[in-house]
Design a protein around this nucleic acid. Structure first.
Lengths: 158, 158
DNA sequence: ATTTTGATTGAGATACATTATCAATTAGGA
DNA sequence: TCCTAATTGATAATGTATCTCAATCAAAAT
């Protein structure tokens, strides 16, 4: 993979992420891309998301219990994940750029990164919890990703 | 699940985690338990790990790209994951207990936790990288978990 | 412009971790 | 002892992601 090529498919996938105002999963991107370009396969979307994040053109957010997310915002910033509906939000807290330097570097380890994820409930799910009998907003994780498309960028501080 | 029962299976699973000096995956625990007690099924192990971490008796470490890990150490501490062999180590860095308090709490969010994972290469994989032609220590992620059983507690600082 | 080469694609199979299903069993209180 | 709901075991199913491989195509070399 020393030489990467400019393919239409790669551009389409990249633009889908860049134009997203949320933190889409690979599956979100696949559905969005596939709708406009039915000939583009799932493997191609996953492959290109991987290549693009490897090239540093987009950012991959990894955290389990949920699918990986992709972020057009390349700057260092913290994320918040709602444990009920799985939506991911940006957090408005200055990134601690010095944390890697404070780890005592010993014993042959090679330290390269630090991933931070805040967890809790988003406003919609806090409200849903307060309203007994009502469904949690997107309580079914299997399908909640389809709700994860907002009009504006989702940020912690609104 | 208001009343939990003391079952033999739950005790066996709990002890398997408590006696582990590493950060085993659910699958690690299943194999260990299943070897001594062939009648205990995979679903039972997964269910009990989930119940036990819900009760706070063990700690669940979530981070994608790899299976969930369980930790007998309930205290707040940081983890390091080798991105080549997937082993998880403890990091000897004082936990920043105040980070939750520094997040600007607005807009109806309910903040409950913060998960931090350092990434990089462990000594074995640094060495494997330096020796061309040699296999990365546990390079095949699908099976590397079987290598994740050490004699002593794995810590960053040794 | 043509050839060559290897990166990329599409479609589906496959892998893996985890959860769901459901009848049978069982712990613990009445 | 009896009841009842929690739990179990075996297996199917699900979600996410990767692998396979022949066909295609971008871009460098000629």
């Amino acid at each position: 993979m020393q030489n990467t090529r400019n393919t239409m498919q790669r551009d389409i996938v990249l633009n889908a992420v860049l134009e997203s105002c949320t933190h889409p999963t690979a599956d979100n991107i696949y559905h969005e891309v596939h709708e406009a370009h039915p000939h583009i396969s799932r493997a191609t979307v996953y492959r290109n998301l991987s290549v693009l994040s490897g090239e540093g053109k987009i950012q991959k957010i990894t955290h389990t219990g949920t699918a990986d997310r992709y972020d057009f915002n390349l700057s260092h910033h913290y994320h918040f994940r709602c444990t009920a509906c799985d939506k991911v939000f940006d957090i408005d807290l200055p990134y601690d750029e010095g944390i890697l330097g404070r780890v005592p570097n010993k014993a042959g380890f090679r330290l390269s990164g630090c991933e931070v994820m805040f967890t809790g409930l988003c406003p919609a799910c806090v409200a849903a919890e307060a309203a007994p009998g009502a469904e949690t907003a997107g309580s079914n994780k299997a399908y909640s990703q389809q709700n994860d498309i907002f009009g504006g960028t989702e940020t912690w501080q609104n």
